[in-house]
Amino acid sequence: MTAVDASPPLVADGASEPLLELRGIRAGYDGIDVIHGIDLEVHPGRVVALLGPNGAGKSTTLKVLSGMLAPSAGDVLVAGRRVNGARPDDLARRGLCLIPEGRGIFPNLTVRENLWMMTHRGRTKADVEEQAAARFPQLTRFLDQTAGTLSGGQQQMLAMARGLATDPALLVLDELSMGLAPIIVDQLYETVSQVAAEGTSILLVEQFARIVMDVADDAAVMVHGHIVETGRPRDLEASLSQAYLGG
């Protein structure tokens, strides 16, 4: 793996240049590709939803763009810079924040310590705690509680609070709704809408497409490792049903 050059944090050059761009990405495991040449762009301030059924290759795509998995072909460009092979910690420190599926928290650390993990990018511990408290006030009651003992929804809030603490340029959310009660999911997506309104670019990955219809500006439908259609979420409903039902 190579380190990204020590250039300033990710800022796209005006609205014309995508903040994140995937060009012809192929990637997989043990020499077998599971995504077969996908192209995807996330422009500054936009919320893009990557939708598709289970096994479509969405999580693999996220692994590639976050630096967890090297693509076998194609390029990942962040703010116009090619970052193929960049280490995930380097990308994270430069403003690409991925919240993985299944509660991205450290269960044996306290809530406060979980937040401290994000004290890079010039943030102090107090800054991070303050910002989290402003976004999710209910978390302040549990600051010294071990994160693993929180409820599923609280854990997801903590993961989001931690992710947003550094004001990332690009927030990537993988299956935010997984295993959560609908009311909690609604709350979380409300926060996502707020964050988007503040100008943060967001890439949402969801298996349950309906949830993100109202939040996303653009959407892409992924099936069997291919992006089969892109457009406005409402325009994609037909191809979504085909993707999910195989019709």
Partner: peptide, 12 residues
């Protein structure tokens, strides 16, 4: 120790 990959994603 909790989650090495997640630590990476958090810039550790």
């Amino acid at each position: 120790v909790d989650d090495r990959n997640l630590a990476l994603l958090n810039g550790a």
